[in-house]
Amino acid sequence: MSGVVVLNTDNTALHTVSIPHAIRMLIRQVAIIEEALEDRQIGPYPVPLVLRLVRYVKTAFLYGRTPAWSKRSVLRRDQHICAFCGGHGTTIDHVVPTSRGGRNTWLNTVCACETCNRRKADRTPAEAAMPLRFAPRVPLWREVTPRP
């Protein structure tokens, strides 16, 4: 068993916790058991599979702003696909080179393979005659958040 699912009061899944953590939540009376293994007990509690919180937890603050830019997140957003040739990308490239005022932003960086990155060098895609296969964009949180 990988963990106990914790639901908000509106039955949306929030996250998973360990069984000891789930039991502590029951003791503190912040959650109630929605589903459990009835034949197994931990003290007075059945072993929980799903808990539901007693009070609603607002989660909008987690997704109210855009994800912070990082090289790793750019690679995740672009799924390690080179924006120039479509091959396996391992580096990032600036659409407007940093030497010309380009910055580390979602809309100015793309994933690139080492060959294309070297070939483009210190030029824009138009100057290097290397059109982008897809436009850079601000990603959704789920695209750049590591999956367990």
Rank of each mutant, 00 (worst) to 15 (best):
Trp106Leu: 07
His88Ala: 13
Ala112His: 06
Leu140Thr: 06
Ala121Ser: 14
Phe134Val: 00
Pro67Gly: 01
Gly43Ile: 09
Glu34Cys: 13
Asp122Glu: 13
Thr124Lys: 05
Ile33Pro: 01
Thr98Ser: 08
Tyr56Lys: 15
Arg76Asp: 00
Leu75Gly: 06
Glu127Thr: 09
Trp141Gly: 02
His15Arg: 14
Thr90Ile: 08
Val17Asp: 09
Arg119Asn: 01
Ala13Met: 13
Ala13Thr: 13
Arg77Lys: 02
Phe61Tyr: 15
Leu37Gly: 07
Glu127Pro: 05
Thr66His: 14
Arg28His: 15
Val6Trp: 12
Trp69Glu: 01
Pro125Met: 03
Ala22Leu: 12
Val54Ala: 13
Arg147Lys: 11
Asp122Ile: 02
Trp106Glu: 03
Met130Thr: 10
Thr145Asp: 00
Gly86Tyr: 00
Met1Asp: 08
Pro136Val: 02
Cys111Ile: 11
Asp122Thr: 06
Ile19Val: 13
Gly3Ile: 09
Gln29Leu: 00
Gly101Gln: 04
Leu51Thr: 01
Val50Met: 02
Val57His: 13
His88Asp: 14
Met25Ser: 00
Ala112Ser: 10
Ala31Tyr: 11
Thr59Gln: 11
Val96Leu: 13
Ala112Cys: 06
Phe134Trp: 03
Val47Gly: 01
Tyr45Thr: 01
Leu107Glu: 10
Pro97Gln: 03
Pro46Tyr: 10
Glu127Phe: 10
Leu140Ser: 06
Ile92Tyr: 03
Leu49Cys: 11
Phe84Thr: 00
Arg147Gln: 08
Ala36Ser: 15
Val110Gly: 03
Cys111Tyr: 06
Lys71Trp: 11
Pro148Cys: 04
Thr16Val: 08
Thr66Trp: 07
Gln79Asn: 08
Ala13Gln: 13
Pro136Leu: 04
Thr124Trp: 04
Lys120Arg: 05
Val57Thr: 14
Val47Met: 06
Val50Glu: 10
Pro146Leu: 09
Arg55Ala: 12
Pro148Lys: 06
Ala60Lys: 14
Val6Asn: 03
Ser99Trp: 07
Thr109Met: 09
